[in-house]
Simulated scan of single mutants.
Amino acid sequence: MSTCLWPGNNQLMKEYHDREWCIPNYDDRFIFEMLTLEGAQSGLSWNIVLSKRESYKKAFHNFDISYCANLTEEELESIKDEYQVIKHLAKIRSVKNNAIRTLNIQKEFGSLSTFLWQYVQFTPLINKRNFDADIPAQTDLSIQLSKDLKKRGFKFVGPVIIYSFMQAIGMVDDHIESCPFHTHHRTS
């Protein structure tokens, strides 16, 4: 069996590919973490973001949504200066903004998970890709979800970011079919 090629020989990327990527997750905290990290990636490589993941967890109290929603401007500036996160202030501010928007969705739908997973009828989209090059950067569904999130006030949620996010939380399985981590090969 051949695995997806995109992680290359990078151990951090391989661990993410093997243990998290395209595995369905319904936990709002994890979903918020992935939304934050995917937004931080905009214009950068995923490897850079993964290498800063632990700093993000410390800075944002393990992505506690209520904590993030209540951060002050001074605390956001402090995070930029004191933690090894992406130093783009708009991306840092988006964590607070998106946490507030997430709390609103939780009030309306019961959870962020319920809101998002309804887009795929609560069942992951299992794709049949032969090569990494077959994986699109965005889809009609990611375009629609991006528009809907933007209407709700979310930031850094363009259709390409959202497609990567959908993969990150397992709404989509884009492992190549020969990869042992594709849904059809996983046993647990």
Rank of each mutant, 00 (worst) to 15 (best):
K155D: 13
Q138H: 12
T114I: 14
F109K: 10
W117H: 11
R129D: 03
R93P: 02
R93V: 01
G110D: 05
F122C: 03
I135D: 01
I100Y: 05
Y119G: 12
S111K: 01
Y119I: 09
V120E: 11
D148C: 01
R152S: 08
G110R: 04
I135Q: 03
K96W: 03
G153S: 03
T102N: 06
R93I: 00
S94E: 02
Y119T: 04
F115T: 01
L141G: 10
T123K: 15
Y119P: 04
F109N: 03
R101P: 01
L112S: 05
N98S: 01
D132L: 02
Y119F: 15
K107M: 12
L103Y: 06
K96P: 08
F115R: 02
Q121M: 09
D132P: 11
T139L: 04
A133Y: 12
P136Y: 03
P124A: 07
A133V: 14
F109I: 06
T139W: 05
S111G: 08
D134R: 09
A137R: 11
L145E: 03
W117S: 09
Q138W: 06
K155Q: 13
N104F: 05
T114F: 08
D134Q: 02
L141F: 01
I143F: 12
K107Y: 07
P124Y: 00
R101C: 15
N127A: 12
D134E: 13
L116Y: 00
F115Q: 06
N104M: 14
T114E: 15
Q106V: 02
L141D: 01
K147Q: 14
F154N: 07
A137F: 05
F109G: 01
S146F: 03
T123R: 14
R101A: 14
F122I: 06
I100M: 07
K128G: 05
Q106T: 04
A133M: 13
N98K: 09
R101Q: 15
Q121F: 11
N127R: 11
L145Q: 00
L125N: 13
T123Q: 15
P136T: 07
Q106A: 01
Q144G: 10
P124K: 12
I100L: 12
E108I: 00
L103V: 03
G153H: 06
S111W: 12
F131M: 12
L149H: 03
F154Q: 00
K128C: 01
Q121L: 13
I135G: 07
D140H: 09
W117Y: 06
F154T: 05
K150C: 02
P136G: 00
T102A: 02
F115V: 02
L125M: 14
F154I: 01
R93Q: 15
L125H: 13
I105E: 10
Q144Y: 10
L112M: 11
R101M: 14
Q121T: 08
R129G: 01
S94P: 02
S94N: 03
N104C: 08
F115A: 04
T123E: 15
L116E: 00
V95P: 00
N130E: 15
F154H: 06
L145Y: 04
S111T: 12
I143C: 09
T139G: 03
K96M: 09
D134K: 12
L112Q: 07
P124T: 10
